[in-house]
């Protein structure tokens, strides 16, 4: 597993869907929430929040003078990640070996098989730079966040459980839980 620099960055990849594949892709993606092991994105290290969105076409606002069609549905993948976008996309390609062929394998220009270095190159090729990125806690890795949340929950439980006990009992309970 690649070491991840503690600096959150955004990843945006927009790829054209092979004509006729949209429905199959959409149903595969919506089915991922019910996958037995949970979301496959949990396996990609450094993923804070991520999404796949089917973009049927770009918006045509009633007020815009002319339409601006993409001509085909596209797949939008975005993620908020630890470290650089390039490293992350390489990790996606290395990790989602079962899923990626079902997903980007249905996109135009994707190498076959849709895995490994070839896929990483394809994703990088279709990545879009971000104009402005906002991160509430930009220097915390996923690991740091989950560890901190765990400390919080354990401490609160300890506080409620031990409050009526005397200082000696509280000290013992605290050290049992948090001894360095």
């Amino acid at each position: 597993m690649r070491a991840r620099r503690a600096q959150a960055s955004p990843v945006t990849v927009l790829t054209p869907i092979v004509p006729g594949e949209r429905d199959a892709l959409e149903s595969y993606l919506t089915g991922l929430s019910d996958a037995p092991g949970g979301s496959p994105l949990a396996r990609v290290p450094g993923t804070h929040f991520a999404r796949w969105v089917i973009l049927p076409d770009l918006v045509t606002d009633p007020k815009q003078p002319a339409p601006d069609p993409l001509g085909s549905p596209h797949l939008l993948f975005t993620s908020n990640v630890d470290g650089s976008a390039d490293d992350y996309l390489a990790a996606v390609a290395d990790t989602l070996t079962a899923e990626a062929p079902e997903i980007w394998g249905r996109c135009v220009g994707c190498p076959r098989p849709a895995t490994g270095a070839g896929l990483a190159r394809y994703l990088r090729h279709n990545a879009i730079g971000t104009g402005l990125f906002f991160a509430a806690y930009p220097r915390a890795t996923v690991q740091a966040v989950t560890a901190a949340l765990d400390v919080h929950d354990r401490l609160v439980r300890l506080l409620v459980d031990t409050q009526p006990a005397g200082p000696a009992a509280i000290r013992a309970a605290f050290l049992k839980e948090f001894r360095p």
């Binding site: 959409e26 929430s33 991520a50 999404r51 089917i54 989950t146 901190a148 400390v151």
Partner: peptide, 30 residues
């Protein structure tokens, strides 16, 4: 979204920021 994922779905942004401030304080006190 066709699929949406959070690594810590039960935590809110406020909870994350508070926990990130709390964890080092707990370690220090320990």
């Amino acid at each position: 979204a066709a699929h949406y994922y959070s690594a810590y779905p039960e935590a809110t942004a406020t909870m994350v920021r508070k926990a990130l401030a709390l964890a080092p304080a707990v370690a220090d006190f320990a």
